[in-house]
Structures are given as structure tokens and as C-alpha cells.
Amino acid sequence: MSPPRLTGALRSFSNVSKKEDFTEHLHDLKTKRLKRRELFAREGLTWQKIVHFCSEDQDKAKRQAANQELKSLLLAAKEIVGPDQGQAAFESAAVFLFETFHNKDHVGTEETRAIKQMFGPFPSSAAEASCACVARLVAPLGESRVENFIQSLCSRHNPQRGSSFGRNIVLSYDCYTLDPLEDLPCSGIDEENVSLDF
């Protein structure tokens, strides 16, 4: 809970700010994750493109192996998003997992956090399985080819660098600190009892 503040009193007792009940509108994290998944689905990289990329220019045996891995990745994605979602949600999650693990050999803290931010709590076995699937999928394709493929399609990897407002502003993180005039007198002697009658 916030300590008592002047601005809190001003918001409550003056008529110069918008009166709003914050508890009414709180977006929970579930809604936010849903919104992020929607935005991610619009980002350019699709499941069809991944399927095509992983199976093109491959001989029959390799193509079959790749298809098997793609199926497994989709299953792992289904476990992560939950079975009550539609096929589009599974595919979008599989795309996210492919993008997350294409250059990773294990599920680290960053990856765990990224998946949780997107889908909420998830079974770690599904993350491990998807990481292994992606590793087997990209191994025969070559690191740079996979990287180029993702870079060319995923808008998240091509942010408009240098165009952000205030990028050159040097912000000071200093904050106001206590600046007392004097320390607490050590003894706390009752000064009123000291006689001034000389």
C-alpha cells in the first residue's frame, strides 16, 4: 500500500483531476496475454511459411522427418496454450516457439519468461519438447539460413531503430533523498527542564 501522499489528498479533495475508480478497469494479465497473442499472430511469420521452409529442397526421407518434428512441435504448442483453443492458436503458438528456440539449445530463463509472458503458466516438459523439436528441425537447414528466414519475415526482429522519441535524451535516475537539517540529539534530554534562570 502506498504511504500517505499530498497528491493523493489533492486527487480526493480537489476538483482538478479526473475521478476514476482504478479497480473497475484493471486489465488482468490473461487479457493482456490474449492481446499479445493476437498482435503476434499478425506479425508476418506464419505456420505455413515455417512448414514450407522446413520441408522445401529436401529429399523424401528428410521431408518426412521434418514433418514429424513439425507435428510434434504443434503438439507441444497445444499443451502450452491449452487444448480448448482452436487450430489457429496452436499454429500461432508453434510459430512463437519456433522463433524463440531457433537459435537455442536449451530452455533458459529468458525463454521461460518469454513463453510465460505470452501464454501464462505452462508445463515445462512441453517447452523442453518444443526446444528439442526446433533444434532437430533447424539442424539440417543451416544456422544462417534459418536466421535470414526469420529476420526477413518477423517484424519484431526489424524494429525501426533510431526512430523512437527521446532516444537521445539522457535521463537522470536521481531521486530526492532525505536532507535533514540536524541529527536526533543523542540523549533526548528534556530541554524544558534545563533552567535558564542564571
Partner: peptide
């Protein structure tokens, strides 16, 4: 649209004022 109001302005001063007073 209440993008700024007096309590917000005071909050901005106390949160960011130290070291960013010119801005």
C-alpha cells in the same frame, strides 16, 4: 482529456525532478 492535471504535475516533479529539472 486530463493528460496532465495538477496532481499529475506534482507527481512528475517529485518523481523525475531531481536531475531532470531543466527538461
Amino acid at each position: 482529456n486530463f493528460l496532465f492535471d495538477i496532481p499529475k504535475i506534482l507527481d512528475l516533479c517529485v518523481l523525475f525532478g531531481k536531475g531532470n529539472s531543466q527538461l
